[in-house]
């Protein structure tokens, strides 16, 4: 069976740490970082790259449009 692997790239300094992407992710691969970005927000990042399916839910819900999604069939 073909497997789908995805990845997200977060524009760290654009992130406001609202956490909507974490709620929207069906496979729970996104978390808020312990570190803060240039504006002082805890930014979101991909904790478990192997589980990401590239469904784009996080990018679609992101109010600031800072998530870029990549997907490949392997």
């Amino acid at each position: 069976m073909a497997k789908i692997k995805g990845a997200i790239v977060v524009d760290i300094d654009g992130c406001k740490g609202c956490g909507l992407c974490i709620e929207a992710c069906p496979v729970e691969v996104i978390s808020l970082s312990d570190n803060v970005n240039v504006k002082g927000y805890h930014y979101s990042y991909m904790t478990d790259p192997d589980a990401c399916t590239g469904c784009s839910n996080c990018a679609i819900i992101c109010p600031d449009g800072i998530i870029t999604v990549y997907r490949i069939k392997i």
Partner: peptide, 23 residues
């Protein structure tokens, strides 16, 4: 690539509060 921010939005960071539906 399957999804990225559209070029029709400028690079300005929106002033809206985190999580606001306006964005």
């Amino acid at each position: 690539l399957v999804y990225q921010k559209t070029k029709l939005l400028t690079d300005d960071v929106m002033h809206y509060c985190p999580g606001c539906g306006h964005g």
